[in-house]
């Protein structure tokens, strides 16, 4: 690399980084390798010492660990704890790492033994209920999304290099969706988690007339009870709402609450929209 890089006279931090994956599709790492046009600049800012998807050699000497995937086996717990010990900064990469992602849908089944038999048959594998990284170790930085956006990772890496703090939008997807002048999905008769989901995706799904599924988890001031009232008012069932909230695991507490309500509905037969509407 030659001389140390600076920005306006201030030394730029070029960390040694490693990429790891647990239970996941590895699509988030693929996102980073996509967009070749910026890959070289990216590599100028970080020194990648371990990236199974991109290189053969690996090293245990790293400062920042980007970790994709959720934790679903005992050996993963041990490996994650090792990574945590070695890394100064642990980054949860994508919805699986942040919230369990689509994988945590497995946790909804009441009979986990049945799930295991359906998926693995008699194969001897110890599959645990899915957990996010933060359920096991301390996570320093979260990069939300399914998949993550490379531009966002690049911005975060630039910020780390310059010592800028990493901030995510605190507001929900609606803010970006309306700035893109989309027709509101509710007007089109589609359910949407935009009003409660953290922005930053530039309303990727609504731009394509698909309702938001909440892959970036709750916005800072999110009020899923209010969302429920709106969904009910637009004619969606509690099941539909719960399905959406369940999908990526960012709204586990809320969906559990609604599931309790659903049981009550089963007894009384009516849905209370709540929230004053």
């Amino acid at each position: 690399m030659g001389k140390e890089k600076t920005y306006l006279g201030v030394p730029v931090y070029r960390p040694r980084v490693a990429f790891f994956e647990f239970t996941s599709c590895e699509g988030c790492q693929l996102q980073i390798l996509n967009r070749e046009e910026s890959l070289l600049d990216f590599l100028n800012l970080v020194e990648i010492v371990d990236f199974r998807e991109a290189m053969t050699e690996g090293s245990d000497d790293y400062e920042i660990a980007f970790v994709e995937g959720c934790i679903s086996r005992d050996d993963e717990v041990v490996r994650l704890q090792e990574i945590r010990q070695r890394a100064k900064v642990l980054v949860a990469l994508g919805s699986c790492a942040c919230f369990g992602g689509v994988n945590q849908l497995k946790n909804r089944f009441l009979d986990q033994g049945w799930v295991h038999r359906q998926v693995y048959g008699e194969y001897p594998i110890a599959s645990l209920p899915v957990r996010s990284l933060a359920d096991i170790v301390t996570v320093d930085v979260s990069i939300f999304g399914c998949p993550i956006k490379k531009e966002e990772v690049e911005k975060i890496v630039t910020n780390i290099a310059l010592g800028k703090s990493i901030v995510h939008p605190k507001y929900p997807v609606c803010m970006e969706c309306q700035a893109n002048e989309n027709i509101c999905l509710f007007d089109l008769g589609e359910p949407c988690l935009g009003p409660v989901t953290r922005a930053g995706c530039d309303s990727w799904c609504p731009n394509n007339r698909a309702g938001c599924w909440g892959c970036r988890g709750p916005a800072d001031d999110a009020d899923p009870q209010r969302l429920k009232a709106i969904m009910v008012k637009h004619g969606f069932s509690l099941e539909t709402i719960i399905d959406r909230l369940d999908c990526f695991g960012g709204f586990v507490r809320e969906s559990a609450r609604l599931r309790d309500e659903l049981e009550n509905v089963g007894q009384t037969g009516s849905v209370d929209p709540g929230g004053g509407i």
Binding site: L8, G9, V10, P11, L162, G163, K164, S165
Partner: peptide, 16 residues
């Protein structure tokens, strides 16, 4: 306290 001021903590004389 913030991004800008923490960056300023690292600059030296001559910075524009």
């Amino acid at each position: 306290v913030g991004t800008l001021t923490n960056f300023l903590a690292r600059v030296g004389r001559g910075t524009r």
